[in-house]
């Protein structure tokens, strides 16, 4: 049973297809990866799933309903969270507030409660702060809670983005190159963290990643995209041996 899928989805920019008729599927409590050379269209696919772009044609199906035309904030509230390839944290909010902000859209109190500190507001905010503290602890950001995100080292900024995505209580998590820029010891730590949150929160994860170590170790299934089209799919060991995939990657290295 899949929790999320795309059906023949397509998106072009100025007549050039960045994503062309791609169908992928993610199961419950599953981890599926999307790989492909630079500019293949991976991030564009995430943008279609999270609603940043509307597709030219094709569908996005989430928990059996068609969400192709839903705006991004509704998809987040529905249970699809994401991180960004180029980290996008909220400067001006502390680490803790970044997480609280992701809980706020689901808080119930209204403007009046906000202005006059009614019990409803105090109670809700207190609960959220407690939850944020738990999350900071799990992710390993407790000591950084009052810092500005811009002052964190790169690895911790990546973690904060994941924590923020988790704060909106997703069913599906889209991670766009979350291990980029991490050093080898941080990568190990990162793999363990993803395993842990996947089990603890019962998440289904869709992962874009260039580091083959991460992809091969973690994925149940891999989709390979090249020039916006699906080049191959399969289990990690199948993909590793696939001649077409090898060719696409070698082609990229020669081009560099």
């Amino acid at each position: 049973m899949s929790i999320l899928k795309t059906e023949n989805i397509a998106k072009h920019f100025g007549g050039i297809y960045a994503i062309k008729d791609i169908s992928i599927e993610l199961g419950r409590n599953d981890l599926v990866s999307i790989i492909g050379p630079n500019g293949a269209g991976k991030t564009t696919l995430f943008n279609l799933i999270s609603g940043v772009y509307k597709p030219e044609h094709g569908k996005v199906i989430f928990q059996d309903s068609d969400i192709t035309t839903q705006p991004p904030h509704m998809r987040s509230r529905g249970g699809i969270s994401r991180t960004f390839q180029n980290i996008r944290l909220f400067e001006g909010l502390s680490v803790k507030e970044n997480i609280l902000a992701a809980m706020d859209p689901r808080s119930k109190y209204n403007l009046f409660d906000a202005f006059f500190l009614t019990p409803a507001r105090m109670k809700q905010d207190k609960e959220n702060v407690e939850k944020a503290h738990e999350l900071l602890d799990i992710i390993g950001l407790w000591n950084e809670r009052d810092k500005q995100p811009g002052n964190l080292p790169y690895g911790l900024q990546r973690k904060l983005e994941i924590a923020r995505a988790l704060a909106s209580e997703p069913a599906v998590l889209l991670l766009d190159e979350p291990a980029a820029g991490l050093n080898p010891s941080e990568v190990r730590d990162f793999i363990d963290l993803i395993h842990k949150i996947k089990e603890d929160f019962g998440l289904s994860i869709l992962l874009i990643e260039h580091r083959m170590q991460v992809v091969m170790e973690m994925s149940r299934w891999i989709y390979v995209i090249n020039f916006g089209e699906l080049l191959a799919q399969g289990k990690p060991d199948e993909i590793q041996k696939n001649p077409e995939v090898i060719k696409a990657y070698i082609g990229e290295e020669e081009a560099c």
Binding site: P71, F84, D104
Partner: peptide, 29 residues
Amino acid sequence: RNFKYSRFGRQCLALKTDELAAKSIGINV
């Protein structure tokens, strides 16, 4: 002051810095 430190104020500051990220965490910008 209460507005600033409420869910409204935090979300305002969030969308002020990054609307795309704000939408991605469920804020109706």
